[in-house]
């Protein structure tokens, strides 16, 4: 078990290395010269441009730039934002809680809607309940987030005046206001995932319900609720957890469009601004941090499998 964990942690290093090369390489393909953008008004002055390039190492070979960056990152130094003049790590730490809050809320909404609906439609398969649940899931999956976001703002903020249309209040400042600012974007993000989760839960539950051990549970006199929620669902959880981990990772990577619509200052907004400003250190830092989150989440998912599936526990 410990050995497995160490091996798993060791795998993270090459993963991140490959990613860092990709991040750096792809970035070179972005059009536009960062020096020109940073020079602003003085973009006509070759001396200023040369100075900026020298300062940011943009005049060095790409390989050198890469190694300078990686060796700093290894020491925990993500560099300075070229634009905002703030350490990238500070920017990340500032935005991460915002995105984390939004992602968690969206994820909870997705689970609360998707999983019970999936179970219900599997248990009542081929009945009107099942058809309705499937229709709801399809609606969740196929509704574009930006459209749903705008409609929600129009309805709840403009028409009813119940919720603020945009902005963000940190949880630590005023939790009610914080929830009010995040509930709509969280619902927008969660509804799509709820649909996907519902489909997967339904499929996994149908498989589980057809197994012999479900018949055994019934032969033991278990109430139908126990048969479904304990005996079948416990086994159906495995594929659902896989999907959940992936979706949560995607949420943490930032919901660019949704954050933009609701002007939530999270990861999504940070990276969009950074890309437009050719603020390379921020782009690199955020992408790497996102990758790290993904890797950690997949580790958590694997640990969860082991908790759920005793067959995996012995290794």
């Amino acid at each position: 078990m410990i050995g497995w964990l160490l091996r798993r942690l060791a795998q993270i290093i090459p993963t991140l290395l490959i990613l860092s090369v990709m991040i750096f390489g792809l970035q070179q393909l972005m059009p536009g010269d960062p020096a020109l953008i940073l020079a602003g008004e003085e973009r006509g002055d070759p001396v200023v441009l040369a100075q900026i390039r020298a300062e940011l190492l943009l005049d060095r070979p790409i390989a050198e730039q890469y190694f300078v960056w990686v060796s700093k990152v290894v020491q925990g130094d993500f560099g300075f934002s070229w634009r905002i003049r703030m350490p990238v790590s500070q920017l990340i730490l500032e935005k991460l809680p915002v995105t984390f809050q939004l992602a968690t809320m969206a994820f909870v909404i997705a689970i609360v809607i998707g999983v019970p609906l999936g179970i219900l439609s599997a248990v009542r398969r081929d009945t009107p309940t099942d058809w309705l649940a499937n229709a709801v899931a399809l609606a969740g999956i196929s509704t574009p987030n930006f459209w749903l976001g705008i409609m929600m703002i129009l309805f709840f903020s403009v028409n009813l005046g119940w919720l603020p249309p945009s902005g963000y209040v940190p949880l630590t400042e005023d939790w009610r206001a914080s929830l009010a600012t995040t509930i709509m974007p969280a619902f927008v993000l969660g509804s799509g995932i709820a649909g996907v989760l519902m489909r997967h839960t339904r499929a996994a539950m149908m498989t589980a319900m057809a197994q012999d051990y479900v018949r055994t549970a019934r032969a033991k006199g278990m109430a139908e609720g126990v048969v479904v929620l304990k005996h079948a669902f416990r086994n159906a959880l495995i594929p659902v957890v896989t999907l959940g981990a992936i979706e949560f990772g995607r949420l943490l990577a930032g919901a660019v469009l949704t954050e933009q619509i609701f002007t939530i200052p999270g990861f999504g907004k940070l990276i969009v601004d950074a890309v437009f400003n050719r603020d390379y250190p921020v782009v690199q830092g955020v992408v790497l941090a996102t990758a790290l989150i993904f890797v950690v989440l997949s580790l958590v998912a694997d640990l969860l499998y082991m908790a759920i599936n005793p067959r995996l526990r012995q290794a």
Partner: peptide, 19 residues
Amino acid sequence: RGADMAMIFQEPMTSLNPA
């Protein structure tokens, strides 16, 4: 069921819950 009448099945490999 399980109290006054019980049943065992042909497939011992799959009749127990793996979890």
